[in-house]
Nucleic acid binder design. Sequence first.
DNA 1: CAAAGTTAGTTTATGCCGTAAGGAGTTGCA
DNA 2: TGCAACTCCTTACGGCATAAACTAACTTTG
Lengths: 263, 263
Amino acid sequence: MVVFAGQGDARRSMALLWRTTRSDQARPGPKPALSVDLIVDTAVAIADSEGMAALSMRAVGERLGRTAMALYTYVPSKSELVDLMYDWALAELSTRHDLEAGWRAAVTSWAREAWEFYVRHPWMLQVSQARPVLGPNEYVMIEELMRILRETGLDAGTLRRVAGTLSCFVRGAAQTVAEARQAPAATGLSDEEWWYARSALLTEVAPDFAERFPTLTWMEGEGAYQAQDDTVPYLEQEGRDTFAAGLVILLDGIEAAMGEAGG
Amino acid sequence: MVVFAGQGDARRSMALLWRTTRSDQARPGPKPALSVDLIVDTAVAIADSEGMAALSMRAVGERLGRTAMALYTYVPSKSELVDLMYDWALAELSTRHDLEAGWRAAVTSWAREAWEFYVRHPWMLQVSQARPVLGPNEYVMIEELMRILRETGLDAGTLRRVAGTLSCFVRGAAQTVAEARQAPAATGLSDEEWWYARSALLTEVAPDFAERFPTLTWMEGEGAYQAQDDTVPYLEQEGRDTFAAGLVILLDGIEAAMGEAGG
DNA sequence: CAAAGTTAGTTTATGCCGTAAGGAGTTGCA
DNA sequence: TGCAACTCCTTACGGCATAAACTAACTTTG
């Protein structure tokens, strides 16, 4: 019997994720002033508003009027805290998309919701996906997508691949917009200011741009990079636009796969 | 006339990216023992083999037999170094995909190459996409994809959205596999060991798994999560698999869009 | 009721990080 | 010869996660 390194820690972190420990019975020592839930909530608030880079044990502790070390009574390490944040945030996703209007509408609503969720919590995209956290809400999210996709009649293996493709796309599309939103605050420049300054430098540094990049120059001329709506920052418009179009492309592709499989 | 914050730095970083500074003329002071290229090369080597987290100015300096501070003579800051690494690495992508066999084959080869590239340089995926680096090789990469896609006959706006969708998907799919590759080294556990330990804990912590997640349980039973090839780690197989299937789905979706547009 | 044991939270310290500041040594040009 | 420009170093600051040792609060046991 092999005992894997860190298995004891794994047990503790799974217990935290699935909340299987009972803490109602009286225990010696001072009453805890904090709780895991409170710490996770606070950490999520920091990551939402100031980004993952600003999330430190000190910062969380400070918001709660404690030192960084105080948190270690509740949570084994920062990485466990991030795992808890990850699963905790996923709880806000809805679990029952309507299948009345068909799988296409349901997938669309699942994807839109997930996209908005990631844009709202951009730090989620920085948590590694391999070796998933395996918390309850992550399973709920996957189960929900699979439940919808099963309506297509595709076999289980194809379903897994389709779901993976959708997830990759939604995450990727959300990341672009999330980064676009953070950029102005991070650099102190609006999209327009930034682009104005950069494009001036670009013609300075690459005066032969049009010859080197003819297709891009053509697209620029066709107005492919023109803002439609002046009230929304350009990069955000482009991101939303790409997501909407990409989703249709994917759904059409899935329908094609159903046709081939005789679904 | 507004002068934007950081524009002076922006000029220097653009000059570094596009290599428009000449250093051949004699200058006072000791001969530089290092060079921007050498530093960028070394930094890329570290990020490739040990991950972005292991990339520090001290680490780069040490490999070159210098202190961290020595690098600041060549490169203004770590974030500029990362920008240089980003564009430098992109240079290895090929610029002339064959269009003889049609756009589908060309897009497939572009996507495969990009996917392999990102898996080889996973740290690339951690460099923000909004406010792009705007180096020469980044433009080459986009130009090449657009050149291929233009064969579809779609309008410029649609092209932009299709290209964005493809990029999101390729990046997302590559990220999954890149993380899967790093996981065993990071945790000291193979996929199988890890899964074995975790699934034991999972039944402990969620004995009612089958009722809570019926679709996932069904898929498991159908063998959707079964490894096909014992010589390749499971997560990597799944990632490759998803990428291949997703690409076909996307291409079919693009064809559908061409049909609608009468292309 | 007192001693013992457990727990929450603190302070302190270690070894990382990016990088500012200032100094030492090297080189080309006046 | 001297100055200015240049490379590279040491030192230092404030940040980070977290280990270790401590205090103080509380329950349980004798």
